[in-house]
Amino acid sequence: MQALLKLSRMIDALTERVGKATIWLVLIVTLISAVNAFVRYAVNYSSNGLLEIQWYLFSAIFLLSAGYTLMRNEHVRIDVVSGHFSPRVLAWIDIVGTLFFLAPMAIAVLYLSWPIFVNSYLNNEYSSNAGGLIIWPVRGLVPVGFALLIVQGVSELIKRIAFLKGLIDDPNAKPNAPSAEEELAKAIKQQRGESV
């Protein structure tokens, strides 16, 4: 079990890196959106490419941070119901949910999205909009995002089993860590302090 917990920590470290990198995409997409709106209304110029890059970045944020959201226990739960269960019952619910719902759904999406990405890549698919962008990179985000979610699901499964065996503390306990927004603000302040 210790080897599996080490694997879980390695997966968590990868997920943490991907999640923290993805946080920066929120700032980038916000800036692009603001510039796009300003240019459209100030100089009456519009670009399909700018609109599409916003959609692509939003897709990246959603898909690449799914595993990070799962790791941080920020995914949707029915707290009215789950708040009445003991930590052990919640761990069992998570195990059953991961094995019978999360894993099959994520594997199915990964399996079905891969050929679409490969076809798009081989055909060098572009948007049908005038001035649109190449499509295969955003199609590639779907299998990558779901692969990361599957890997993080394995880590969460390991942690729940280890908790039930008494080897680790409750993985569902909410840590007193800063929110994603607070982490982004801190990173911006640090960046500004280094460049001054």
Rank of each mutant, 00 (worst) to 15 (best):
L5H: 03
K6F: 12
L7R: 02
R9E: 15
M10Q: 13
D12E: 15
A13S: 10
L14C: 11
L14H: 07
L14K: 01
T15H: 05
R17Y: 11
K20A: 02
K20E: 09
T22G: 04
T22R: 01
I28T: 05
V29W: 01
V29S: 08
T30G: 15
L31H: 06
L31A: 14
L31K: 06
I32N: 14
V35H: 10
V35F: 15
F38V: 15
Y41M: 12
A42T: 09
N44P: 01
N44T: 13
Y45T: 09
S46V: 13
G49V: 09
L50A: 11
L50M: 15
L50R: 03
L51E: 11
W55K: 05
Y56C: 01
F58Y: 10
F58I: 13
F58S: 10
I61C: 02
F62M: 01
L63K: 00
L63Q: 00
L63M: 09
L64A: 06
L64F: 07
S65L: 04
G67P: 00
T69Q: 03
M71F: 12
M71W: 12
V76D: 07
S82Y: 08
G83H: 02
S86H: 05
S86E: 05
R88G: 05
A91Q: 03
I93K: 00
I93G: 00
V96C: 06
F101Y: 09
A103C: 11
A106Q: 06
A106E: 03
A106Y: 09
I107R: 06
A108T: 12
A108H: 11
P115H: 03
N119V: 03
S120D: 06
Y121A: 14
Y121L: 15
N123I: 06
N124R: 09
S128Q: 04
G132H: 01
G132R: 02
I134H: 02
I135F: 09
I135Q: 12
W136P: 11
P137M: 04
R139D: 09
R139H: 12
G140F: 08
P143S: 01
G145L: 07
V151H: 04
K159A: 11
R160K: 15
A162D: 04
F163Y: 12
L164S: 00
I168L: 05
D169L: 13
D170F: 08
P171A: 08
K174P: 08
P175S: 03
N176G: 10
A177D: 11
S179I: 07
A180T: 13
E181Q: 14
E183D: 06
L184S: 04
K189Y: 10
R192N: 07
G193D: 13
S195M: 13
V196R: 13
